[in-house]
């Protein structure tokens, strides 16, 4: 049994303009001690997936179907009491902007000690010691001094490290990091990623890493989920996704980033504009922008199918390839 099993999860927002199906029937497993990357374009449902697991959706949002099992325990419909212990002891999240989740009016120490006493049975003195220990763990220099400082007195990179320390204070089984380095400079980003990797080795937790940066995925992740318009279009091991992509969106995404091969040449962008979730196409959601789109792509969504035991994709091109392989000779003979 995987640590986290998500099956056919659906989450919608109910707005004046209609139901926004932000997460539209996704399934995946997270194994213990693994790093799972979630990539996909802005608005594809990455954060909403994370917020659904934590059940911290905006008031107009609701899980409308599916199941989320943590260590075998069903979380969908489990109620706030269960979710409180999950959020306190089992799953923590680091948000993209550390300023939104650190309270500007309290010192770092106050916030750390509060989090630790809330989630563990340490008293205040022990929590203080643990707080300093955690700050050391995330390479914050002069931790005693930092405990007395306010968030605005720290640099962006340091605030993000404090956030990681807070998220670790409950010794979670799963750490969800929602674009934890997007606002940071490359050299600071490298420090934070390095830190997350070493903490993972040390503490043995699983990590869900949400990012739009394929470089971050390549560096950190064992498994990758690629999302498009609320669905998973492709998932597999990092090597499978990077070296053998089987969905046209993933292929397009990988092709569009500059590399040694594009030197002095034009980049190959994905054409068109991002999807409008209120006006979803009836077939494959990527079809309107897909260079390979066939008639069937525009009319019918494609089920996910196994490419191999480490790789799944939902793209009609794979079905076509399979059929051509099986019937290849026959098709040629009939002149098609």
């Amino acid at each position: 049994m995987a640590l986290l099993e998500v099956r056919n999860l659906r989450t919608s927002f109910f707005t004046a303009a209609g139901e926004v199906k932000a997460v539209n029937g996704i399934s995946f497993d997270l194994e213990r001690h693994k790093v799972l990357g979630i990539v996909g374009e802005s608005g594809s449902g990455k954060s909403v997936t994370a917020y659904s697991i934590m059940q911290i959706l905006d008031a107009n949002g609701k899980i409308t179907g599916g199941s989320i099992k943590l260590d075998g325990q069903e979380l969908v419909g489990a109620g706030e009491k269960v979710m409180k212990t999950v959020r306190g002891n089992k799953v923590s999240i680091i948000f993209q902007d550390p300023m939104t989740s650190l309270n500007p009016t309290y010192t770092i120490g106050h916030q750390l000690i509060e989090a630790i006493t809330l989630h563990t049975d340490r008293d205040k003195k022990q929590a203080r010691d643990r707080g300093i220990e955690l700050l050391k763990l995330v390479n914050v220099n002069e931790p005693e001094k930092r405990m007395k400082q306010y968030p605005f007195e720290l640099s962006g990179g340091m605030r993000q490290r404090v956030m990681i320390a807070m998220a670790l204070s409950c010794e979670p089984d799963i750490l969800i990091a929602d674009e934890p380095t997007t606002a940071l400079d490359v050299t600071i980003q490298a420090q934070i990623l390095e830190l997350m990797k070493s903490l993972q080795d040390q503490l043995g937790m699983a990590i869900i890493m949400i990012t739009h940066d394929l470089g971050v995925v390549a560096q950190l992740c064992d498994e990758v989920i690629v999302m498009y318009a609320g669905s998973i279009c492709e998932q597999g091991t990092a090597d499978e996704i990077f070296y053998h992509p089987h969905h046209s969106y993933t292929k397009g995404l990988l092709r569009s980033i500059p590399s040694a091969e594009t030197d002095g040449k034009k980049l190959q962008p994905i054409t068109g504009t991002p999807i409008d979730l209120l006006n979803m196409p009836k077939g494959c959601p990527f079809a309107p922008r897909c260079e390979d789109a066939m008639h069937i792509c525009i009319n019918e969504p494609c089920e996910r199918m196994d490419i191999n035991e480490n790789h799944k994709a939902a793209c009609w091109m794979n079905v076509k390839a399979l059929l051509t392989e099986e019937k290849g000779g026959a098709l040629h003979e009939t002149g098609n």
């Binding site: 374009e41 802005s42 739009h212 940066d213 394929l214 397009g252 995404l253 569009s256 980033i257 980049l267 190959q268 962008p269 994905i270 054409t271 504009t273 991002p274």
Partner: peptide
Amino acid sequence: LDVSIQAQ
């Protein structure tokens, strides 16, 4: 801009 739009 989103990564998919940057190249354009």
